[in-house]
Design a protein around this nucleic acid. Structure first.
Lengths: 190, 190
DNA sequence: GATATTTATTAAACTGGTTTAATGAGAATT
DNA sequence: AATTCTCATTAAACCAGTTTAATAAATATC
């Protein structure tokens, strides 16, 4: 679980003993391509960390997937909205590849935060990080054109395009597959 | 500061003594319509609570305001992005009406959180609340049409339309004034 | 290796916004 | 009261996306 450790320590200092205490609750879990970690209607019991693979986070609207996010190596994730609000999820979490995650239950997260001030701070800071990501996302949705957002994604997460079908990336960008195809054509003609 | 108290306690229980400790740091401050609480280039020193009035939070892009949010009575606010990242702001905070706020410095917020577990919890929960708001905002930007977002705003914050000029509401919705006008016309014709 | 299925592209018609510019209506200033 | 300024609407031309449908290419399955 070295990469999990490293990611936690990228937020704040955590002593070896606190880290050991926290990590004991994480369990390794594997999913085959196409498996669901979560389906609509369920309550959120777990937090996840991606060791290897890719998980899509989406809702179904009128028969098509609306992709909110792709979680790849090093991401902490869950359906955070349903997790916080303690409501039934209306989303899917689906493995787009064979995927290995480390998972911790909501109850154990509480235990860890009660036990370790340092890890509670990690929790707060990772929450802040999520705020920053969402803030930038909103700004991108408001101020950039679809083409600009496509180029931005290409720049920030280039490997995504090798591992995820284009129509899901289109959805993530808020486009139809046809729309993204047009943008790509327009760019290739320059 | 009864309304400030009430708003804090809507998040979590806070004892009278902790509340008293926290509130001592807040100072009342008034701004005239058109005054700026913040301009680009500044670092964020304060957190605010709106007692009375309305403050717009926006950036300037190519000569036009891009309104991120309108803060009205009961809102906690600052340029949270610059506050968290500890970077120079690229935004404006401008009073759209004569406005009364309670303000607390960043250093005093830290003091309060160090002193009171209950108020630190309030801080965490208000941060979570902000996440939920932003999450819903992203979903609205992605899944609703401009017309639907207009109707949604009309439903959720009807008084805003009596106190804020329409071209700023258009900006908040991610539209031009012409675009919003068209939507309103279309709706009135039905 | 042939067939079926999934994914990506293209074309055509359409739509909901944009930009620019002119007009109108209200509010503030002199 | 007249003038100026700000704000909202309208019109016209335009554009970047949509939908639908057909086709092509790649991938999975038998």
């Amino acid at each position: 679980m070295e990469d999990l450790k490293r990611t936690i320590r990228s937020y704040t200092h955590v002593s070896d003993s606190d880290m050991e205490f926290g990590l004991q609750f994480y369990k390794k879990q594997t999913f085959k391509k196409g498996d669901f970690l979560l389906k609509p209607g369920q309550y959120i019991d777990n937090f996840y960390f991606v060791k290897q693979g890719c998980v899509s986070y989406y809702t179904m609207e009128e028969g098509t997937a609306q992709v909110m996010e792709f979680f790849t190596e090093g991401y902490f994730f869950t359906d955070l909205y349903a997790y916080i609000e303690d409501i039934q999820s209306s989303s899917y979490l689906e493995a787009l590849e064979d995927t290995i995650v480390y998972t911790i239950s909501k109850a154990d997260v509480q235990k860890v935060f009660d036990h370790s001030h340092q890890l509670e701070r990690f929790g707060r800071l990772s929450m802040q990080h999520t705020f920053v990501i969402n803030f930038q996302r909103i700004n991108q949705l408001r101020n950039l054109s679809n083409q600009e957002r496509y180029l931005e994604l290409l720049r920030k997460r280039p490997t995504l395009f090798q591992r995820v079908p284009q129509y899901l990336i289109a959805s993530y960008l808020g486009l139809t597959p046809v729309g993204l195809s047009k943008i790509r054509k327009r760019l290739s003609q320059k």
